[in-house]
Write a protein that binds this DNA or RNA. Structure first.
Lengths: 214, 214
DNA sequence: TGATATAACTGACTATAGTCATTAATGATT
DNA sequence: AATCATTAATGACTATAGTCAGTTATATCA
């Protein structure tokens, strides 16, 4: 059991995965997700068909692989350049609208990507990375909410992690409605998302009941 | 263009659809969704393979067909026997827990059912029925919230339809987390769902800010 | 009732995702 | 450098969802 020194295999594997990623990216963009066959991806990546499935669990996993980098950048972007004066609701709508607008570049493919992340038996392969990415996003979101606490916009007693989860859930619902064709993009952002967030921030209780809790 | 009188065709079609439903139901229960082939369903329903796809758009549509009746009954049940004294949060947890516990009978198949409803291009065939079912459920839920208004549990200014949507979104997130194996059933109901609902009811704002709004 | 039109049904066919027994390449050990 | 062990790569193969050109059944109407 001696340490691997040359690392030829490791480098080859990394290179192969990157080739697969590039091939998938190119073909999905060129012909669309459904029209692309896994054989085409394998051929373009310069590997056998069987090999492809050593690197990705299934076809959808290829899509997740392609989206990983883009989403990472998107998370970065969505939290930068937030205007100081914006109220919380607008900040949140601003953050999440980045994602909606990104998916709008290719809604068809986005649907398959999001399907790959929802209601899966277990998150293996590239999906696991994507799940970790979402977890990181939720932490950043909770951080934003902590800052809102400091600004006095939200109550100090709030569980910001739970709040972040709630906002994500509401975002996801809007995303689903939009990609399902129930609303158009601008309506989704300016109405569905905003109204949902507004109600989450405001809550349902009348003031007198809230006072009772203190 | 004379009216159809005998209606032989209509009756035949209704009967065939029912046969398909029963065959699907039996086989999905017997061998599981994935292990069941569409040929088996067709054979058991006494029709050709091509005919099957005149009645269902695809395999998942068969699943939606099977679930339609069960969900209808479930909606009914979930709104009956609500204890008068329960606070809103408990009522809502109670309502939604019916669904989680129902899906717990066969979580594997439930995953495929829910996939069939999420991020689809368009809701055709049986899926359209399922979407209408959800819309009806949301209306009932909004009705519950209206009653909560009368009891003074929530503010009169609340848009109960939006609130119903929000609760559904939060429920769906919990459902997804549970079926994805991130939490067990009891945790999902007693923590994930309850905490999410709690925060939606309470809201995020400190009392002084709320007062400003009035 | 016979002729014609329309709607429903069919299973052979196609396309393709994912598997697996076999082969090739790399790394460890002497 | 020769041998062995482990890991990676391969493509022929399998399984099955969904299609479609051809066929059959029902309805309409002279």
């Amino acid at each position: 059991m001696v340490e691997n020194k040359s690392g030829v295999r490791e480098r080859n594997k990394k290179q192969k995965l990157e080739n697969i990623r590039l091939a998938s990216q190119f073909l999905f963009k060129e012909k669309g997700y459904e029209a692309t066959t896994t054989r085409e991806v394998a051929e373009r990546a310069g590997i056998g068909t069987g090999t492809l499935f050593l690197y990705a669990r299934d076809k959808q996993d290829l899509l997740v692989l392609v989206y990983l980098d883009a989403i990472e950048e998107l998370i970065e972007q969505s939290f930068t350049g937030l205007t100081e004066t914006q109220p919380l609701r607008e900040r949140l709508v601003g953050i999440f609208s980045h994602f909606l607008r990104f998916y709008a570049n290719d809604p068809e493919t986005a649907r398959f990507y999001l399907q790959a992340l929802t209601f899966q038996k277990s998150l293996e392969g590239q999906r696991q990375e994507a799940a970790a990415q979402i977890a990181r996003f939720l932490n950043l979101l909770a951080g934003q909410l902590e800052q809102a606490k400091l600004r006095g916009e939200i109550s100090l007693g709030i569980d910001t992690v739970q709040a972040a989860r709630n906002f994500f859930g509401l975002y996801f619902q809007t995303l689903s409605a939009w990609l399902g064709g129930l609303v158009d993009l601008e309506t989704a952002i300016n109405h569905s998302l905003r109204n949902a967030f507004d109600l989450q921030i405001t809550g349902l209780q009348p003031p007198n009941l809230i006072d009772k809790n203190f």
